[in-house]
Structures are given as structure tokens and as C-alpha cells.
Design a protein around this nucleic acid. Sequence first.
DNA 1: GGATAATCGAGACGGTACGTCTCGTCTTCCT
DNA 2: AGGAAGACGAGACGTACCGTCTCGATTATCC
Lengths: 169, 169, 169, 169
Amino acid sequence: MQTKIGEAAARGRPRSETVRLAVLMAVDDLLVEEGYEAMTMKGIAERAGVGRQTVYRWWSTKAEILYEACVVDAGRDLAAGADDPGDLDAFRRRVAGFLASTDAGASYLALLAAAQLDPAVATLMRGGDPVRAAACEALRAAPGDDPDDIDDAVAALLGPLVYAALTGP
Amino acid sequence: MQTKIGEAAARGRPRSETVRLAVLMAVDDLLVEEGYEAMTMKGIAERAGVGRQTVYRWWSTKAEILYEACVVDAGRDLAAGADDPGDLDAFRRRVAGFLASTDAGASYLALLAAAQLDPAVATLMRGGDPVRAAACEALRAAPGDDPDDIDDAVAALLGPLVYAALTGP
Amino acid sequence: MQTKIGEAAARGRPRSETVRLAVLMAVDDLLVEEGYEAMTMKGIAERAGVGRQTVYRWWSTKAEILYEACVVDAGRDLAAGADDPGDLDAFRRRVAGFLASTDAGASYLALLAAAQLDPAVATLMRGGDPVRAAACEALRAAPGDDPDDIDDAVAALLGPLVYAALTGP
Amino acid sequence: MQTKIGEAAARGRPRSETVRLAVLMAVDDLLVEEGYEAMTMKGIAERAGVGRQTVYRWWSTKAEILYEACVVDAGRDLAAGADDPGDLDAFRRRVAGFLASTDAGASYLALLAAAQLDPAVATLMRGGDPVRAAACEALRAAPGDDPDDIDDAVAALLGPLVYAALTGP
DNA sequence: GGATAATCGAGACGGTACGTCTCGTCTTCCT
DNA sequence: AGGAAGACGAGACGTACCGTCTCGATTATCC
């Protein structure tokens, strides 16, 4: 197998995909078992059976790892049905299910909360919030006049769902 | 009269109100200056000019301190206007201003987020959420039929406001 | 009851002899039970059933308390037999028994050690070492020419006994 | 050949000899400057320019560090002359000089005292007392009949010297 | 096929917050 | 005034995790 034309030749041992997946799974598991606050870089490395430096080589913080683990699954879980692109009520039900019942939903809520407490995480989430992106798309596809302020519309659509998930049991 | 009847005589040196206020103010200041995540019990004690053990004697975690600092101000800032008890739009504006512009609002958002990441904080907030309490009261006073599910009604009322505050700038 | 003529009238509540004895007994007990290092002012006060400030009012350190508890008993235990003032072998046996078998002996060894580690205790012991005093008296009463250097003579007399007690089981 | 047969391959970063020596020197210095009682694990780490955890990784207590610093030097300082193996008076002079004038001698006296106050230190010293070991060897080499009780002989030999050093200026 | 280079597991390193302990002082009420 | 109770500022305790570093071992590409 050859390297793609135009790519710098990758010298040295290539990154282990096994390690990447082991870390992402470890983060998912630990979030459920211990919660975000109790989760540590040390614990993640040990759970994944991986050296600590190896984790730091590819991610800077636990939030970054969780974000990567989250976006992969969020696309799948959220766009799952993809029933009627214009049905906002169906989208609402899908988001509610995502937040309440999936690992990726729990990760997303944790990241949303962490972004509130740590500016570094806020920067991470600012650009690529997968749920917000899905909401924007659903709003665009929905019939009716485009709202004046997209932010208000998203808040009206997602706000009650997210609030219920945050304060719910 | 020296001590109230039925009250145990207070033995030993009484708790210093000065210290209590210094700690609450320190927490308010540090939350604004450094953020919740960077705030530490050590830092709070030093900022308040108080021994570390003295802080631990009265509060277990920074969340507990912040909660006490928050509820005191929340009642004042939130119920301030109290213009028309039945005007939900006025209540919405008041909450939006509280979340966006007051120290107590910032504390409240931080606690809401921290509750998502730390089960201990969740327990703390479960019982006495001052904003939720105000929302329940506003809903009760508003004209119109009482909603079937109070939780849904609160989510519809506060959700967009809180979501906007969480994801806003 | 009246105050003695020529003495300043003792105003206020007089010092409680009960408290003094309770503290001295507590120190003796705690030395045996927990050892000198583990003994604390707080622990002494609690064991004696006495306020902490009350202990500090009359003594500055645990060494001072132990010293007072020691000298009272040392005189009794050491001069007990008082058989033949000139018999150095009898004195040796008496000292060995004192160091090995009495509470006051244990206290004395602890103070001797503490003096080595803490200059404040060293100052305390410099002046009034009860065992050294007894040894000097025994040497003076013994027949034979007075030694040139009293320090050497005391070291020759007490050294082996103290060393054995220090390193013994 | 890379690793000796039967030896486990040393994994991870090897222990820093620089750190070990820095800590031992810091202990020696602090004992002289501040005394044993005032010496703290925190202070040792700071003086050595070393993390606190690094000290705890290799030693449990300040006594353990001092012991390691002491035995290294004691062997050198004590067996230095080694003039006539059978000359007990020469040995006495060597020990007296060791106790009075060397850092290792001061460390030894501090450990001897600490062993009296703290059972953990006593256990540490019980096995490997370097001065006692030297004394046993000197006695064995000395002409004359072997004593009935080695403990008595050591006490007679070292007792006066140690006692003088303990109570001296 | 040997040199080069980046990855991996392991773990020591300096640093810092944790929550607990005792210190010695203080402030209150009670006797 | 003495004494018991207990809050106070201060600071060391031993532990945990932080992020960095330095090892030996492994696994790829390049010459």
C-alpha cells in the first residue's frame, strides 16, 4: 500500500487505531460509571490500558476526548429516523430521546455543563455543537417563514428539552 | 432576658458573622474573576483572609458556599419588581436580566452546570432551586388553566431563557 | 479563711488543685499509652476533662507538664531506699530500677530524648535534671577522692545505665 | 547483553540519583540549621528543590531519610582511622569525636532520641545501629576474655560517651 | 537490511489542591 | 477571676492528580 500523492510521507510508527478506540470507549464507560467530575486523565488511561503520555499526545483534556466520542455517535443517534425533514415535533421527540437515553446524549449534556464552568471547554463547544447544528437544519427544512433571529428560534426549540434533561432525574 | 426559653445556651465562642460574609463575598468575586472550575477551597479561604479549616467547618464544598451566596441574592434580584403577579412576559424579562446581568445569576448558572457534573451538587440543587421556585409561583399566579404537568410548564417557561444564557456569549 | 499577712491578696477564683492533678495524671497515662510523640496538648486536655486554654494558662508545652509530673515522683522513687549514702552500687541498682520500672523513669527518658530534639526542652532540663542531681550527691557521699571532673564522673556512673535504658527493649 | 539474567527489566523512568542525594543533603543541612523537631517533610522537599510526593515515594518519615543519610557517613567517619583493631581507647576517642564533631554523629544522636519518642523510629534503629555494630566489632577484636553479656559490655563502652554527648553542650 | 523516526507502556519528576490535624489565641457564657 | 467550650488564623500532614520527562520496546518508512 502506498501513500496518497501529495501527502507528506508518514515516517515512524503510525498511530494505533486500537488505542484511539480504547480511549474513546473508556471515556464513555467512565462517564456513566463515575460522572464527569470524578473522571480523570489518569483514570481514563488506566481504564483504556494505555500509557498516560499516549493520551496526552492526542488529546489535551478529558473534555476533548469526550467531545470526540460524542460527535461520532451524535450524528448517528440524532439523524437516525430522518423521517420527515419538515416535522419539528418528530425532531423534538428524537432530541428528547437522544438526551435522555443515549450515552452520547449524556456526554453532550456533560460537555454543555462543562463549557459553562471552564472557558477552554466553552471554546471547544462554540464551534461545533452537533445538537445545535441538527436543530438549525431542522428549522431550515420546516415549513413556515424563516425566523428573524436564528438563536432565538433554536433556544425556543431546544431550550425546553435541554432544561428538562438538565434538571430531570 | 439572656437566652430564649427552650434554646440551648450557646457555649463557646459564637460563629463570626464577619467570616461568613467574607467567605460569601470571596466566592462571588472569584467566580467572576476566575470561573467556577478554577475556583478552589484554598483560594476562597485566602481571598477571604480566613483559615482553611474555618471554611470547611461551615461548608463542605465550593458548591455549597456558592449556593448560599446565590439564594440570598436570588430572592432579592428575582422578586424585585414583582410588578404584576400575573404577567408572565414581565417574569420572563426579569429572569433573563437576572441570568444575564447579575452575579447571583452567574452563580445560579454555574450551580446548574455543576449539578450536571457532580452528583453531590445535584442533590444540593434538587431541593431548593430558587429560580424554579419563582417560576412555579409565577405560573400559579398567571391567569389561565393550571397546566397538567408542572414540570413541563416550567421547562417551557424557563428552558429557552436558561438555554440562551448557557450557550450565549 | 484569710490570706497570709505580707502576701498580696489573691483576688478572684484561686487555681484549682483538682485541675492541676488531673492534667499531671493525664500526661502520665498518655505517655504510657501512646508515647511522647503521639501525645498532644489537645489530647491531654481532653483526657484530663479540662479546657484547652486552662492547660495553656499554666504550662507552655507538653514537656513542661511532663517535667512537673516527673520531678515530683523522681525524688520519691529515686531516694526511696536511701540505704547507705556511700554505696555507689546500691545507687546504681536504684537508678536502673527507676529507669526501667517506674512511670517517672519513663517520663525522664522521654524528656532526656526530647531535650536532644528540641532546644526549648533542652533549656528546661539543663537546670534541673533530678537524676543528675541525685548522682552528684551520691558521688559526693561516696568514699574516695573527689574526681577532677564532675561531668566525667557522672557520665561514667549514669552513662551505662541510661544507655541501656535507651536502647533496651 | 542488555539486562542481567534473572533481573526484571527496569521499566519506566529510572529513579534519579540526583534527587536522592539532594534530599539526603537537605536533611543533613536542616538538622544542623533548625534541629530535628523543627524539620518537616515539606521543608526537606523545598530545601532539596524536589516535589513532596517524590520524597514520600522513597521514604515514609524524616527519620528514615536521616537514617539513610547517617549510615552512609557513619561507616566512613567511624571506621576511618582503624589504627589498631584491639585498642579500645582509640575506639573511644574515635566515637567521641564522631558524636561531637560530625554531621553524621549529630544525626545519630537525633535518631537515638527520636527512637525513644516514636516506636516507628525505634523499629528502624533496632536492626541497624551503626555505632553499636562498630562497638561490637571493636570488642571482639580487643584482647581479653569475651564478656558474658555483650549488651552490658556495649553499654559500658558506649554509655559514658553517648551520655556525655546527649547532656553536653 | 540497516538507519531513522514516531508510537507505545511504564513510571519518576516538580507542582498544587485536597481534606484533616494540631497548634496557640481568641471570645463567649457559666461558676 | 477561673474554667469549659469552641471558633479562629496558621500551617504541616499524607494523598491524588496534574502535565512533563525519560526510559526500553515496538513498528513503520526510507535509503
